[in-house]
Nucleic acid binder design. Structure first.
Length: 454
DNA sequence: TTGACTCAACATCCTTTGCTACAA
DNA sequence: TTGTAGGTTTCCATGTTGAGTCA
């Protein structure tokens, strides 16, 4: 009656009796073997243990770990988050050491993971979206633990007891290394909802899983898949919960500006090209995904294509209106002594601002060395202002500022939260941070702006 | 090691009105 | 009656990143 479990290239192989009772296992009667995606390992083991079934478990191949001890003292909310995670939660049969934690940028998410590593004393894989974060995590882990730290990504492929990987490299290697870790930490776990990246979660057998993010929910509802792969949201604090204690207090000022008559005319023309097409072709946006229908049509229907292009042009006008640039001039004037980051939605606008106000700019076209130089000079005070598009939203260690100006942006709540996070590091003088949001009156931007505020 | 390139993957992209079929 | 879910699978454009290749 013994059930034997093995890891086999990203799946679990089960042999024995009554395999069809096991949760998530597909039984093949001919070969008398069962198969399940590797992420079901913890649930299957849990079921077997609860039903007093004998198990020959050879799934994990874990290296022995040195004593993983960190001197870090968790803040009370970090401790609460760690405890909630250890208890698991949600669902009918919650599994321990599983779940996602939502904490604002700058509140010390890394430290919660370090606490988990120390508690479990098991080989751990940390998965992060960018190489910048790979380096930050390596530095952190090497400082906290007396253990070698390996890396997947950025040209290195070396596994150690503690290993940091990009999502891309984890995707490529998951099948090979899926049995070598007892704990996996997904930093910026919302990425795991991506169509391809979710396979990483499926192919790993690690029973303990932690997801960290500042914005758990996804507009496409893929966080439900994340809950299945990592665990439910077990702990959550918002920026407002920590403002004043561990993050700076802040104010948001929304400034409404008018289009010039010429801009207004062009905006209305493009916008109506778009809406006229919608009316004519009977397209209704009853759900968010209906926009896909329009995009699909534009592949074959020139009018649909023209409608979309017109919409693009209208967006560009409202997002980069003259009045916004003028308002920015006033803001920069009012904040001569402050450290200001200006955000735009389009590179062209970022370059315009850069030229007009002589502010250094960072976009994805900025090379690594130049980028490093600009950030370094912003950090040491040589520059007090930076203009950027979407580059600094996530995964880059950006020096603190106290004023942010959103000249234009998408309706994404995530983008807004990340941009706000850039100014929330506690101020030495206890001062408040200030975020300006510029919105063109009577345009679709009013709706966009309200959407991103949740 | 670096830099320049290509490629693939991911994310956002949206209007305010009310179709159609089916289940509770 | 009322409320809720609903077929299809791919991609107009822009921004961003990591991996891989080649010099």
């Amino acid at each position: 009656m013994t059930v034997s479990l093995r890891y086999d290239d990203g799946t679990l192989r089960a042999e024995g009796d009554a395999l069809d009772e096991l949760p998530g296992v597909e039984y093949d009667a001919r070969s008398h073997t069962g198969r399940a995606p590797a992420h079901r390992y913890a649930a299957i083991r849990d079921w077997l243990d609860r039903n007093d079934r004998a198990v020959d478990d050879d799934v994990l191949a874990l290296d022995t770990v040195p004593d993983l001890h960190s001197d870090y003292e968790l803040r009370s909310y970090q401790q609460d988050a760690l405890d909630a995670w250890a208890a698991g939660g949600g669902g009918d049969e919650p599994l321990p050491n599983r779940g996602c934690i939502e904490l604002p940028t700058g509140s010390g998410k890394t430290v919660v993971a370090i606490g988990a590593i120390e508690r479990l004393q098991t080989p751990t894989l940390v998965v992060v979206p960018t190489l910048d974060l790979v380096h930050q995590w390596r530095t952190e882990l090497e400082r906290e633990f007396d253990a070698p730290v390996g890396q997947f990504g950025g040209g290195e492929q070396r596994a150690e007891v503690l290993t940091v990987s990009t999502y891309d490299s984890a995707y490529l290697k998951a099948e090979d290394i899926g049995d070598r870790f007892g704990l996996v930490v997904f930093d910026e776990v919302h990425h795991l909802g991506g169509e391809g990246f979710r396979d990483i979660g499926r192919l790993l057998a690690a029973p303990a899983r932690m997801g960290l993010t500042a914005t758990f929910e996804r507009p496409d509802d893929a966080h439900e898949i994340i809950e299945e792969l990592v665990g439910p949201l077990v702990y959550r604090l918002s920026v407002d919960d920590l403002a004043g204690d561990h993050l700076a207090r802040y104010d948001v000022k929304q400034l409404t500006v008018e289009l010039t008559p010429d801009e207004r005319e062009r905006y209305e023309e493009h916008q109506s090209t778009f809406t006229d097409y919608l009316a004519r072709s009977n397209i209704r946006f009853t759900s968010g995904s209906d926009y896909q229908e329009l995009i699909k049509r534009s592949g074959t229907d020139p009018e649909a294509r023209e409608a979309l292009l017109a919409k693009q042009r209208a967006r560009r006008i409202m997002m980069g209106s003259q009045a916004k640039v003028d308002a920015l001039a006033d803001i920069l004037d009012d904040h001569r002594g402050d450290r200001v980051i200006v955000f735009t939605a389009h590179n062209a606008l970022a370059y315009d601002i850069s030229e007009r106000f002589l502010i250094p700019t960072i976009t994805h076209e900025t090379g690594t060395s130049e980028r490093r130089e600009v950030l370094e000079k912003f950090r040491d005070g040589t520059y007090s202002r930076v203009v950027t598009s979407n580059v600094l939203d996530e995964g880059v260690d950006v020096p603190d500022a106290n004023v942010a100006v959103i000249l234009s942006g998408s309706g994404s709540e995530r983008e807004f939260t990340q941009r706000l996070g850039r100014i929330l590091r506690p101020k030495t003088d206890g001062g408040r941070a200030l975020l300006y949001e510029l919105v063109s009156a009577e345009t679709a931007e009013e709706r966009v702006a309200s959407r991103r505020r949740g």
